[in-house]
Amino acid sequence: MILLEVIPINEPATLQERRKYYREEWDVKKLPDFIKDHMEKREFGFDHLGKGPNDRYRIFRSLEYLKRFMRYKSPFAAYCSVAFYDKPFKRADWIKSELIFDVDAKDIPIRTCQCENVCEICLGEAKEIVSALIDTLKEDLGLKDIYIVYSGRGYHIRVLDETVMKMDSDIRAQILKYLVGSEVPRSEYSTKGDKYQLEHFSIPFGYPKVFTQRFKYAVLHLTPEIKLENISPALFKKVLNNKKYLLNNEWGLFRKNVGPINYKKLVKEISNLNMGLVDAKVSIDLKRILRLPTSLHSKVSMKCMEVKNIEKFDPFKEAVPKFVYERKD
């Protein structure tokens, strides 16, 4: 919180500041390779006035053209498509699209900070969520070509494994649900005609494990100030009083104290909430444009940038453009 108060970010960048950024600080060569490769197949879009990206269907055949454009226009915001097209200038002849997960700190369903916009706390929570999602992408789905981009108010996970890039929206929605834990896991199984009860936390692999992790994260981040729509105040109090058991993975005790029927209700509620961990629309949209890494998020005066090491990344150190420090002077 301290840094936010000292450095006046979250204030929109002026045209002069944008010009300064694109002419003095921004370097086209720092565009991530995954953007530079086949850049001519992507559609670019720009917002010049801060009213939405209505300058669309642009293409750049070389880095030099993009460099000139950015220096000359100093746009309020710059975007490029997650899709590759044969005719990007018409948004036609779609080839493939990156698989995207957009974690916006201000939209996380359970935020301990309760701040109005974004702050260090919720950005930190977004980071935790991103790390968990990436673990699942790698460990369960076996995906490898994954990049993280700090968007200015959260993180974009960009997956470029060829095996997923041609997938349609329906399958992307399934991946999303698996990843965030928005499906209520089965608790009844049967074999040879006999039924057995097996809760998700007893299964240390596959989707039940993913759900267990997301459930634990959600419950441990609950604070008395948070309200859950379909959970009564009495049950919510019970959950808060017993959440300590989850710290030690004492799931049986937690479930017992909350009550098995209540536990079911809580599972349902959290699976619904989990859907809000990422912006689903971004993941299923094959033709979306996404903030261009290295460009300026002028609304909050922060740099959108690739994150090489999510554990160590501190947006308040690495994503603050120079002009913000000069503002203070």
Partner: peptide
Amino acid sequence: SLHELILDNGD
């Protein structure tokens, strides 16, 4: 559905 399968490292 994807969540009906047991997945490990893509398998």
